[in-house]
Design a protein around this nucleic acid. Structure first.
Lengths: 238, 238
DNA sequence: CGGGAGCTGTCAAAAAGCTGTCGTACGTCT
DNA sequence: AGACGTACGACAGCTTTTTGACAGCTCCCG
């Protein structure tokens, strides 16, 4: 029997008892063009879920009243089949979570990097959209990044990136041709609460350039410095 | 602006009185692109079967009201010929079940690994599709896995894999060329509830490599490590 | 031409991954 | 029942890779 799935603005419910964290996630999501609401307790989460009908939920497992598992259970009992991405403390209940994530739902350990969370949310959404879901391939000029195979190519040439390089590049590509400040990059790609006082971003960009821009000689560089502001990745535009 | 995408889905009914388990199965199925509903009692199962018209049913034998056998019986009496995969406790009524699994039906012992359950569901569906059903052979480069005969070959050479190795390899092959994290592999291939804190996945991959990649010398390795992320199986790219 | 912003080489600590060894569990065969 | 063989995973040692601090250097821009 044929089915029709409607695709529109993503609705996100963020549940975390720490308001700054919940807001952080909601803000980033809104900036992506999503609709986001936050709840700071289990009760509130259930109430909001019922009236907001989210497409996806970010759920902290450590909640003051009802804990994350309880919320999930009630959510499911009420027939809400929405996918969930869990948040958990470093060495907290990670193992217990594992049992819940086999399905395809996902989880992330706090403190996490915002971009990573968003990437996982997108992946989960993409997968739950139905069979034959689309590959996600980012492209800027002759540079491509396949988010499923993690293959990054400059033209034909396959590049080997470290995790950090990969994340920074993904963020730049996703936002291209917007110029991003070092602070933005730091805030999105590194875990919140990262104490890096130094020039990490410059360092990673430097390494990226060596792999991207010097990969073929003769090709124009793609990562550009906007002095006094930040970086962009795009086809050289004078 | 809304878009409409037409999709054709397998319809699965999951019957288990333990909601987390039922949800687990339903969630996995949905991520495979199926449509799934859950019932937590025999009565509910019958009601849902009547209105949902599933293509396949996962049926726990231990139900509060009417037990699994009763459900099956009523199902069959009502003329529903849907194939059924039973779930049973470790040393439960395994033998009695065996008698019931005539035709295309099958059964699995709890706790199970989700990949194995899905594999069985696919097999049962395939067989129930009619006579002359299709063989299922996975292939990546010169590596083939026949899911019916369980034969795995690298080129001509027949490999002997242990059950765990087989399952890990199947999961990798099925998802190829997507990169999978160790957590994903662990969550899908091991039984839910497995508390493995160690490097089991690395260990199995290591053993697999020895059998696959060093089987013929001179052949390029197929299982690749994506450092900081996970593993893929695919033809070496470049 | 001076100063600040940005770039990059070097290095050491930490993380991630690989594999040998061994004990236990389980199934099978005699 | 006992002996044997296989599979699995805990553990630990070792290797490789990644990361970010530091520092000196360059380059742009006024």
């Amino acid at each position: 029997m044929p089915q029709y799935v409607r695709v529109e603005k993503v609705r996100l419910l963020v549940v975390d008892d720490d308001p700054p964290i919940a807001d952080l996630v909601a803000t980033v999501a809104r900036y992506e063009g999503w609709e986001a609401v936050t709840a700071n307790s289990g009760e509130e989460a259930l109430r909001l879920a019922a009236e907001f009908h989210p497409d996806i939920v970010v759920l902290d497992l450590m909640l003051p009243d009802l804990d994350g598992f309880g919320v999930l259970d009630k959510l499911r009992r009420s027939g809400a089949m929405v996918p969930v991405v869990f948040l958990t403390a470093r060495d907290g209940v990670a193992d217990r979570v594992a049992g819940l994530t086999r399905g395809g739902d996902d989880y992330l350990v706090k403190p996490f990097a915002v971009e990573e969370l968003m990437a996982r949310l997108r992946t989960v959404l993409r997968r739950s959209a139905g069979p034959g879901f689309q590959r996600s391939v980012l492209q800027v000029a002759d540079l491509t990044m396949d988010e499923d195979t993690r293959e990054v190519r400059r033209g034909e040439k396959l590049l080997t990136l470290t995790p950090t390089e990969y994340e920074v590049l993904r963020y730049l590509m996703r936002k291209s041709p917007t110029v991003l400040t070092k602070a933005q990059i730091l805030d999105h790609v590194w875990e919140y609460g990262f104490g890096g006082r130094s020039n990490v971003v410059e360092l990673v960009v430097s390494r990226l350039r060596r792999k991207l821009d010097e990969s073929d000689d003769g090709t124009a560089p793609l990562i550009h410095t906007v002095r006094g502001f930040g970086y962009v990745i795009r086809q050289a535009a004078e």
